[in-house]
Amino acid sequence: MKNEQDWEFHMYIRAIILFGFMLLLFAFIVSGKINSYVSPRMVPFAYMAMIGFGLLGAVQMFRGTAKNMEEEMNCGCGIDHRPKGSPLAQFSLYLIFVIPVLAGLMIPEAALDTSVAKNRGVKYGSGIYSKPSPPKMENEKSNAFKIDADEYLKDPDGYIKKMEKNATKQAGVDESAAGSDDARAYYASLVNTLARTNKIIVTPNNFMEVMAAMDHDIRPFVGKQMEISGFVYRESGFKADQAVVARFAVECCIADASVYGVLMSSKDMKAYQDDAWIKATGVITKSVYNKHPIPLMKVQHLTRIKEPKDPYVYPDM
């Protein structure tokens, strides 16, 4: 009888844990907090998982009822299905499952900030996100400017050499690739559309597109006004009046978030700490980061803003 009670206990605690996961997902979805964890295109999967956990929880609950217990105890396969191990081992097993539920429900979520950005390195301009292929890296006229500032600061010459070496390899790939014509056409039209306006307003929706377009060709953007918001990010080699206005871009979940931003300069920059959210309006100029052209925004107007409810931007597929 003792065993039977034990087994029943396991049945119920497992049911509770499954319902716990369902509740966690339900709470995230209802409160909108789900957006702090995964990108919108993963949300349907969260719904699906919520239903799945509910179903499994109900199954498990039903297994624990007396009628079914008998069947569970002798399912006839000659295998003991009961959890093995000492009470302590069993306790820690369930603890492992309880931790994420409690961690999700009780510990407040934190938006990624500059400490994470420093760990990951920032991409100035687009670089990463490429619906069509980014332009060739090697020649000046294509104006690619993905830069890992950390690495650059450590060893400028070595870094540039590596950039050039890789770029040459990359060029080979790009030229042979079938889709690259489409890609170029896509970028050209993107650049055209954006460059037609005199003031480019960067919103969370077009953030990645603008970054990609400036990455493709900076020239049409030079002299344009731009309005952009994001958090302040600095690296150790920056001048006192320089900072990056940056956003995290999330593909699936925030574990894969990467940082994108535009370098800007303003005499008021000192007043803004790292991680402060700002809206900046200014004129795009072309700056050169050791042979690699990058956009530099000369800020005309700088204001502090509240951190947006959804701090991330999402590249759309």
Binding site: F45, M48, A49, F53, A110, S115, A255
Partner: peptide
């Protein structure tokens, strides 16, 4: 009282799980 880095670690942890759980299911 919890340091910001811990909160971020926790957020990334929960985020990986939320993303993976549907596929594990």
């Amino acid at each position: 009282a919890l340091p910001q880095s811990f909160l971020q670690m926790n957020t990334i942890f929960v985020s990986i799980l939320i993303e993976a759980l549907p596929f594990v299911l």
